[in-house]
């Protein structure tokens, strides 16, 4: 494959409440910042991820285009998914060889509606959505299955939440949340700190190929493998104690050997345990040093931010090989794995 790297990453200072900005106003400074950081103002391809249900009106991505400077007209596309999949689309486009750069962005405000209920709209319309089952309740089903299957104690979840919040407090972009204390269940076995917080935010990444990447930055984060896989939709058709689609995506992305840091799209504490298993990440691998989604979850950008945060470890010289993960759907239905390295691979 053609070598392609993450060369720039920008994100908002995410907020836990509505700061009075429209989605486009959230995004615009991020685009301005990433153009300034790279010195690139026209990109070979632009791709974004967003979700109309966050504001309850169609065509979020149309307004967002105002922030990009799409004049003269640009080569552009959009996925109604987390922007990690927009990055995947851009990476595929860069493989053709006609273009050298791509801008990817995602944005989301979960402060405007009850996101766990919005999530219900994305479930099977005949058997699941009419039940009104929400995202947290589904995640709790998976947590229960995992805890019982492995004999893991619920206190382990609180440790994960505490580590995430500590990471978030060290991250200027994340929410600064207190250490989790005693709390009643939100949906047993999950407690409020096991659930990603309400967050508004946006993020952008610039990808560049080959020489262009080396021209733009000193340490590009070369994508050595990227892949995504799905599972059946109905939770009742699946083994919820593991994540076979994550395992498969990682294998297709060239495996996880040598990974030092992993940024995982864990919207619930127990998901870190399931994903660590699926990705064969040993105890030595630092997971979500940024705090992860449990410290900031601007949906539709959260997965893309994982790629950006992981790449930043390479750009900053603190890691040589990193992994980023993004997920979508109920109970980790669909998973994307992106492995990056400071060394350009031969492939």
């Amino acid at each position: 494959m053609r070598p392609v790297a993450v060369v720039a990453f920008a994100q908002t200072r995410h907020t836990g409440e509505d700061a009075g900005l429209s989605e486009t106003e959230l995004l615009a400074p991020v685009i301005t910042e990433i153009k300034r950081a790279t010195g690139v103002t026209r990109f070979g391809f632009t791709c974004s991820g967003s979700n109309d249900y966050l504001a309850g009106a169609p065509f979020s991505f149309v307004s967002a285009l105002d922030a990009v400077g799409a004049w003269p007209p640009i080569s552009e596309s959009h996925v109604e998914m987390d922007a990690a999949w927009a990055l995947y689309e851009a990476w595929v486009k860069l493989q053709h060889g006609e273009i050298d750069t791509a801008l990817v962005y995602g944005f989301g405000k979960t402060s405007q509606a009850a996101y766990p209920e919005v999530f219900t709209q994305g479930l099977d319309p005949y058997y699941l959505a009419p039940l009104g089952v929400d995202q947290v309740s589904l995640a709790a089903l998976q947590a229960r299955a995992y805890l019982e299957h492995t004999g893991t104690d619920e206190r382990r979840l609180q440790e994960i939440a505490a580590k995430a919040r500590a990471g978030g407090r060290d991250n200027p972009s994340a929410l600064h949340l207190d250490d989790p204390g005693e709390a009643d269940y939100e949906v047993a076995p999950l407690r409020p700190h096991d659930v990603a917080p309400v967050t508004d935010g946006a993020a952008a990444i610039v990808l560049a190929a080959g020489e262009r990447a080396r021209d733009l930055v000193e340490r590009p984060a070369w994508i050595t493998g990227i892949d995504h896989r799905s599972e059946p939709h109905q939770p009742g058709f699946r083994d919820l104690t593991c994540s076979p689609s994550t395992r498969l995506a990682a294998a297709k992305a060239g495996g996880t050997g040598g990974v030092e840091v992993a940024e995982l799209h864990t919207q619930f504490s127990h998901e870190e345990l399931i994903l660590r298993d699926a990705l064969d990440l040993g105890d030595g691998v630092a997971v979500n040093p940024s705090g992860g989604p449990l410290a900031a979850n601007p949906v539709m950008a959260t997965g893309l931010i994982r790629i950006g945060e992981a790449a930043a470890r390479i750009a900053g010289g603190t890691a040589g090989r990193v992994l980023a993960h993004a997920t979508s759907g109920p109970c980790l239905q669909q998973n994307l794995v992106c492995v990056m390295s400071g060394e350009q691979s031969d492939g």
Partner: peptide
């Protein structure tokens, strides 16, 4: 727009219906 059928992110519900278990599936919207 997803609002037409009221099924958000339909690539989830449709993944296995389209034989995409264990495969990549993406949803485009322009």
């Amino acid at each position: 727009p997803d609002l037409f059928e009221g099924v958000m992110t339909p690539e989830g519900y449709l993944a296995d219906a389209l034989g995409a278990s264990g495969k990549p599936i993406m949803r485009v919207h322009t």
